[in-house]
Amino acid sequence: MNRADDKSSMIEVQNLRKRFGSYTALDGVSFQVKPGEIYSYLGPNGAGKTTTIRILTGLARRDSGKVRLNGCSIDDNPLEYKTNFGLVPQHTNLDVDLSVEENLVIHGRLYGMSGREISARIDELLKEMELGNKRKITVKKLSGGQKRRLLIARALLHHPKILFLDEPSVGLDPAIRRSLWGVIKKIKGDGATVFLTTHYIEEAEFLADRVAFLDAGRIVADARPADLMAEIGTWAIDILQLNRIQSFYFRTRQEANQWAASQESEFTLRRVSLEDAFLAKTGKKVE
């Protein structure tokens, strides 16, 4: 593999496998993410989303497969590999007895930043995350949403090229979630590559350049959201049959209407969403 190939993808994963005892959590996962893309990794509980991120960030071992970030292999040079990314884990991992600022300073020092650099970056990020007045506050006293934003600020502190976000919007109210989406778009605008797992399909639909559906440790689809939706149709009809809502998909509105006219039960006509594509591929609902 030559250097030029390496550069064309920021994240490169080939045939990744991971077992926990006899349980196969990842069963040959492969994907590539290009620089500046937002890649969204969707899947039901236990699909292996967090496991993928943990392996990519060096928190968990893999059984086999190849992993590269920015052309750098985790085995050849783990320290250089790790400078490439920032991580927002699924579970908040802040020092709750320390202040917002102290948490950030420790992070900056871990990444070899100078005191002045750290301080300037803290100013910038706290303002961006609307935590400007919380600098000296103990983390314990922050709300859930504020802690999430602090985690993002911390992950961005050292200017990573890649940001791993493991369900960043979990537990946030709708308004805060929307503002977080703005933040993520801005991170992309600044040139970073974003790897995002989420349970909120509309989040992936709004943010992602590309979406992968993960199901029981395998990627069952990997494409642009529009293409995934187009694959099943443009219009959907939901109809109540045998106490269950069934969805049917059509290319045109006219086709849909014609079909609906032949039905007895009540129906709703709507546009196909990413959720339809997800259901069609995995046969499961994302909680």
């Binding site: 783990p78 400078t83 579970h91 991992n93 992070h107 871990l110």
Partner: peptide
């Protein structure tokens, strides 16, 4: 309890 060790595991330190 706090999962802070992960912050060190993910950081570029030996």
């Amino acid at each position: 309890y706090w999962h802070i060790f992960e912050e060190f595991q993910a950081a570029p330190i030996s």
